[in-house]
Nucleic acid binder design. Structure first.
Lengths: 298, 298
DNA sequence: CCACATCCATTCCATCAGGTTATCGATACA
DNA sequence: TGTATCGATAACCTGATGGAATGGATGTGG
C-alpha cells in the first residue's frame, strides 16, 4: 500500500488533460514513460483508473474517486514537507526571504541590517526567484516572506504590504531610435516588440507588458526571458524593449541597454508578502516591521 | 517536492525505534539499505532529520516536526487508496467480505445466497484471512464487512453484531491419551502444549488459549500457526492441542486429528463486523441483514 | 587493559525500475 | 486513401536500490 506521490501527480495530470500525450509534455516526460507510470499506479492499486480509447483517457469510477481526493492529499503532503523544512529553519534561526530581481533593490541591505539588529542570532537567507515565479517562492511555501513587485499572481491568498512606489521606465537597445529621446510616451512603444516574462506568469506578464494601457492593442512579444541576465541580453540584442522599474537603470546598467523615463504608464509598487499562516509568527512579523520602517524612512 | 511514502514509513520506523538496526529488522531490510533510505529522505527534503550517535538515532527539530505529522499523512494516504479501490468495487457491484477460517462455516453459503436474492447483479467476494489478522481485513480496510469470531482486536473501533454461538471443543492428536474420552474437562488441558495463533494477535491469541480460564496458570505454546492447514498439521504432528469451534469437527476433519467436547470453557461467538463508515452504505447493511436473518432461522 | 558488543557508515556488486527513442496498430478526418 | 493522433510496445541505457561484508567509534565487562 505504498505509492510514490509522483505517480499520483502524473495521474492527476493525465486526468486533467484527458490524454497521455498532452500530459506527458506538460510533465516533461516522454509519452511511453507516462504510459508506464499510469499502468504502474493501476497495478499497485489493483484498479483500473482509466478507460483507454483513441479519443484519449477517460476516468473510471475509481479514477474519479482518486481524482477527487488526490489534490487534497498532495496538498497535505506538501504541507507536511514544508512544515518540516520550516522547523529546521526555525531551529537554525534562519529566516528565508524570497525576492524578485529588482524588487527592493537598495532597500534590501538596509532591511536585512535592521532585522539583524532586531533579532540578533538570526540569519536572513535571501533567495532570488526567477520571473517565472513572481511570488518569489511564497506560493509554494519555499520562503517565509518575499519582497516582490505588485501585483502578482496569487496575491489574494497572501498577505502583503506596499513598501515603495517608483515609476516604470523603459529599457531599450542603445541603438534604438527612441533611445535618443530623453523621455518616451508609452504610446510610441505600442508597436515595439517586447521582451516579456514567461507565458505562465499570466497577470504578471500582462502587467509588465502594460497590456491594460495599450488602448486594446495587443502587445508584440519579441522574446521571453526568465532571468535578469537573459533579459538584458535580449534587449541588448535588439529582440525588443521592456518596461522596468526606474531603479533598474542603476541596478542593471549594461552596455547596449539604455533606460528612459516613460509617460503614460502607471508606476510600479514594491511589497513585502507573507503567508496567512505567518500572521502570528513573531520573527516574520519583525521582518515585516523592518521592511516597513526602513522603507518609510527613505 | 516528491517523496515516496515508503521513505516516510521507514523514517517513522527509525524514529520509533530510535535505532537504524532495530528499525531495519522491523522493516525486513538490511541496515545499510535503511541508512540509505533515511539519507535519501534527508537529501530530498534538504533537512537533517536525525542526529547520529553511537547511542542511536535522535530526532532533530525537523525530525520531530515530521514525526508528528507523518502518521496522519500516511493514514490519509491509505484512506484515499482504499476509497479508490472501494469505488472500483462499487462500480463493479462487488461486495468484499472477509472471513476467518471457521467463522460462519455452514451459514456462509446461505448468507451469500440470500444476499444474491436481495441484491441481484451484485457479487460477493469472500476473502479468507489468516489468523494473524483476526479482523479479517477490516482493520486495514481491505474488505467492506467481515465474518469473524468475537472477541477480536480492534473490536471497539468497528461495528459488530453477534450471529451465532457455539461451544468450544478441543482438537487433539488422535494418538493423544485424552482422545479416548468422550468429553474433556478444560482443567485437564492446562498443562498440555497448545497450538496458538501468532503472538501479534494479542487478545485473540489469549482467547483461544483460554488464558482467562486457566486459573492463572500460564499456557504452554507448542507451535504457532497462521493457516488452517498448518494448524491441522501441527496438531496431527503432536505439537500440541487447540481449542476450536465445535463446527470445526465437521469442517476441518482430518486423519490424525480428533475433536472432543470440552467443559469449563466459555462458548465462542460468530459475528458480522463492518466499519462505522459503512453504517449508511445500503449494500453493506443489506448484507448485514442477510447475515442476521439467515443465522436467526437456523 | 583488552576483547567484545553495539552502534552507524562505507564499499562493492547485482539487480531492477525508470527513462528515452523508435515503431506499431487503430481510428478519425480530410 | 493518405495523414494526423492516440496509446501500446520493444529495445536499450542509466541510475537507484538492496544485500553482504567490512570498517570505525564507543561504551562494557572480565
Amino acid at each position: 500500500m505504498d505509492v510514490d506521490t509522483r505517480l499520483v501527480r502524473s495521474f492527476l495530470a493525465v486526468a486533467e488533460e484527458g490524454s497521455l500525450t498532452r500530459a506527458a509534455e506538460r510533465l516533461y516526460v516522454s509519452q511511453p514513460a507516462l504510459t508506464k507510470q499510469i499502468r504502474s499506479l493501476e497495478t499497485q492499486l489493483g484498479v483500473r483508473l482509466f478507460t483507454r480509447s483513441r479519443a484519449g483517457m477517460a476516468l473510471t469510477e475509481a479514477g474519479q474517486a482518486l481524482r477527487e481526493r488526490a489534490p487534497g492529499l498532495l496538498a497535505a503532503c506538501d504541507q507536511v514537507l514544508r512544515e518540516t523544512k520550516s522547523a529546521a529553519r526555525v531551529a537554525a534561526r534562519v529566516l528565508r526571504v524570497g525576492f524578485l530581481a529588482s524588487a527592493a533593490n537598495e532597500a534590501t541591505q538596509d532591511i536585512v541590517a535592521a532585522f539583524g539588529r532586531l533579532r540578533p542570532g538570526w540569519r536572513v537567507e535571501m533567495l532570488q526567484a526567477a520571473w517565472s515565479d513572481p511570488s518569489a517562492g511564497l506560493a509554494d511555501g519555499e520562503v517565509d516572506a518575499a519582497l516582490l513587485r505588485l501585483p502578482f499572481p496569487g496575491q489574494e491568498t497572501l498577505r502583503h504590504e506596499v513598501l515603495l512606489e517608483e515609476p516604470r521606465w523603459v529599457a531599450l537597445p542603445s541603438s534604438h531610435p527612441l533611445a535618443a529621446r530623453a523621455e518616451i510616451a508609452f504610446a510610441d512603444l505600442w508597436d515595439e516588440p517586447f521582451v516579456a516574462a514567461p507565458q505562465e506568469t499570466g497577470e504578471w506578464r500582462d502587467y509588465w507588458l502594460a497590456a491594460d494601457e495599450r488602448d486594446g492593442r495587443p502587445p508584440r512579444v519579441g522574446a521571453t526571458t526568465d532571468q535578469p541576465d537573459a533579459w538584458l541580453q535580449a534587449i541588448a540584442n535588439g529582440y525588443g524593449v521592456a518596461l522596468a522599474p526606474a531603479s533598474s537603470a542603476r541596478y542593471y546598467a549594461r552596455p547596449g541597454v539604455t533606460y528612459r523615463p516613460v509617460t503614460g504608464v502607471s508606476p510600479t509598487r514594491v511589497g513585502i508578502a507573507w503567508p496567512p499562516a505567518a500572521d502570528t509568527d513573531p520573527v516574520v512579523q519583525d521582518f515585516v516591521r523592518c521592511c516597513r520602517d526602513t522603507c518609510a524612512s527613505m
